[in-house]
Amino acid sequence: MAKKDDVSRRQFLNYTLTGVGGFMAAGMLLPMVRFAIDPIMKEGAKQDMVPVVEVSKVTEKPQRFTFEIEQKDGWYESKVTQAAWVYKDKNGDIVALSPICKHLGCTVDWAASPAHPNQFYCPCHGGRYEKDGTNIKGTPPLAPLDVYKKEVKDGKLYLGQAVPQ
């Protein structure tokens, strides 16, 4: 009766069943999946510029300053202390580097290694950076330290988000 390549009744039913089942699964799961992946889709909140230190206190030698930011973590709002290494470069411009090592996220320190007095040093795995944040070849980090967005207003230094160099 039926030709060989004809879709049999049973096959047809199975295809329709898959279709209807797929529709139901999609109807149920689409809102839920969109709900779950919301953190990926959300644009990062813009971070306000926070006053950190008076410009006059910034020297040529990097100094560590801490400042508090308002952090909004979903429903949880809190104040988080962040730190920055701040100095004036040769042209007198202010540079603010993040102390987070680009290797595995430890905290770097200025001139902490006696052998390298003019570098940032990470105690975890011996990562080193130049004064401008550039990572030194041959040490673990693969990228330079992040720099904070900065702004000088009324003689005060304001810092914002840390961005990769």
Partner: peptide, 10 residues
């Protein structure tokens, strides 16, 4: 959260 109304509503 996007679709939060729907998921909680469900």
């Amino acid at each position: 959260v996007a679709f939060g109304v729907i998921v909680r509503g469900m």
